[in-house]
């Protein structure tokens, strides 16, 4: 029989008034975490007059989609959405293509310098994007990429590659060595054993890693707002600034677009929540 886990701070050890206190704190935490998110959704259904209502209304008077319609007709959210999808999907594909062979190589094959490469990958996590901003700008200018999606995709792939390799390695390591050895004995070449034995076993890990990359790139702002100057090429996060005028901000449309941006990230996250919590928690264990 599996032994039950003892919680060191179990609520059972508290007296009645203390339990009420815990309940209140829990409620407070619930509101704190959820309220801003609720406010985004609520505002996206309010018209301008309602947004400036005093006192502010906490529930929508009616569910009105006009902010969403305005976002697509008055503003260019459809275009921003297309740009974001293009940049993000290309980055995810590129990163996976670059990172998977490297992760396999580092996790399964012993070679000279692999330890140094692994520690280098960890160190790159320290390099802030701001430090790379100016030289990347000069470099992309030289490649004639400035103000094009290429100037986003290529740096994004490079920046996501280290994390991607580190995460994927943890999946490759999990596959028992015997499976590969058996394949070799059966006459598989290295590439056959990679494609037929390893890949099916680690594909879920690769997908989860890709989701992580997707969420990171989907919300990138610093490079996207610095390297893209024409409105038609804006990604979603940069496009949000077009709702903000000097005098007036169209909060309704801005929040409607925020909902549109947040939904893919939320869905992808929920679908792989276990991965996030377990692998990432494992990642910072050392």
């Amino acid at each position: 029989m599996k032994k039950l886990k003892i919680a060191p701070h179990s609520v059972k050890r508290y007296s009645k008034p203390e339990k009420t206190g815990i309940g209140l704190l829990a409620l407070l935490l619930f509101v704190l975490v959820l309220f801003p998110f609720y406010w985004i959704i609520l505002t996206s259904f309010k018209d301008t007059l309602q947004i400036y209502d005093i006192p502010p209304s906490l529930i929508p008077k009616k569910i009105d989609f006009m902010n969403y319609i305005a976002a697509f007709t008055q503003y260019k959210v459809g275009m921003f959405l297309g740009n974001s999808l293009k940049v993000t999907v290309m980055t995810v594909l590129g990163t996976t293509f670059v990172a998977t062979p490297a992760a396999y190589s580092l996790a399964r094959l012993k070679f000279k310098g692999s330890a140094q490469i692994k520690s280098f990958l960890g160190i790159t996590q320290m390099f802030p994007v701001v430090v790379l901003l100016v030289p990347l700008f000069i470099f992309c200018n030289k490649l004639n990429l400035y103000n094009s999606h290429g100037s986003l995709i290529l740096p994004y792939i490079a920046m996501q590659t280290p994390v991607s390799i580190i995460l994927q390695m943890s999946y490759f390591v999990d596959v028992p060595k015997e499976m590969e050895e058996a394949a070799v004995i059966d006459g598989c070449s290295l590439f056959q054993s990679f494609f037929y034995i390893m890949l099916p076993l680690v594909i879920s890990g690769i997908v989860a890693t890709s989701i992580y990359t997707f969420i990171q790139v989907w919300q990138e702002f610093l490079i996207a707002s610095s390297f893209i100057t024409s409105r038609d090429l804006y990604t979603l996060t940069v496009g949000l600034s077009t709702f903000k005028g000097d005098e007036l901000t169209d909060w309704g449309a801005l929040m409607a677009t925020s909902v549109i941006i947040a939904i893919p990230a939320m869905i992808l996250f929920t679908s792989s929540q276990d991965f996030f919590i377990n692998r990432l928690a494992g990642g910072v264990k050392e």
């Binding site: 406010w39 702002f221 996060t237 925020s258 990230a265």
Partner: peptide, 15 residues
């Protein structure tokens, strides 16, 4: 509790 962390930071700023 991870909603704030998953929400793109730009949106957090605007909200």
């Amino acid at each position: 509790i991870l909603i704030p962390w998953i929400l793109p930071s730009v949106i957090t700023g605007y909200t």
